[in-house]
Design a protein around this nucleic acid. Structure first.
Lengths: 102, 102
DNA sequence: TGCCAATATGTCAAATATGACATAAACTAC
DNA sequence: GTAGTTTATGTCATATTTGACATATTGGCA
């Protein structure tokens, strides 16, 4: 990887070394990423199923469209907390959140 | 509730009005609290099952004993993020995290 | 009782997440 | 094409979370 690209990715919050050497990720790092990815997908699925725009979801969740986009993209700047709160705000039950994770 | 007690609780991060009027909590607030409580319990159970002290868990999770205590107590200052990361660090799989939530 | 390990509580500076905003890019329909 | 809508990306001041520390409280046990 070229230094410039690495720098750009690191600026975005990714741990470049560990992503590049994917097989070298600790099991819990992998698990954390997977878990977050599952929640992101679940959120996007819920939104599209309801035929809502990101702007509409942002209103419901009391955040901004850009943050909704980042949530769905699994951006490293968004926490599991926010993903879970958003799912709940969209009407998901804890059981459904659990289902999304597993 | 006396003003002094209310103030103390609010200083700790609790929304006093909504806790006091428990039945008036929005469903998603209730769900969020339940979910967090489930994770707290799961964490404590894992720790005690392994016969670890909070200090030992703190080492594993790379945090402090006081934060572990707060996690187990479901303190409002701890995020779902930290609870999940801690569970994963203690060897839980995403599936097991999901089971804890549901 | 006193001693010791474990757990709980309070505080705070530093780290991280957040909403908001601007703006860019992608998509549709005309 | 281009006008309108949706989604993505970048940035930043503010808010929240964090680890660490001190200290208090609890729970045995000799």
């Amino acid at each position: 990887m070229k230094a410039a690209k690495r720098k750009k990715l690191e600026a975005k919050g990714w741990k470049v070394g560990s992503v590049e050497d994917f097989l070298g990720l600790s099991p819990e790092e992998v698990a954390y990423i997977e878990l977050k990815h599952s929640l992101s997908n679940s959120l996007k699925e819920r939104r599209t199923r309801k035929k809502l725009s990101q702007v509409e979801v942002a209103k419901i969740v009391k955040t901004s469209q850009s943050r909704v986009a980042k949530m769905e993209a699994g951006d490293p700047s968004v926490s599991i907390d926010l993903l879970v709160k958003s799912l709940l705000a969209l009407g998901a039950s804890p059981k459904e959140v659990a289902k999304a994770i597993a």
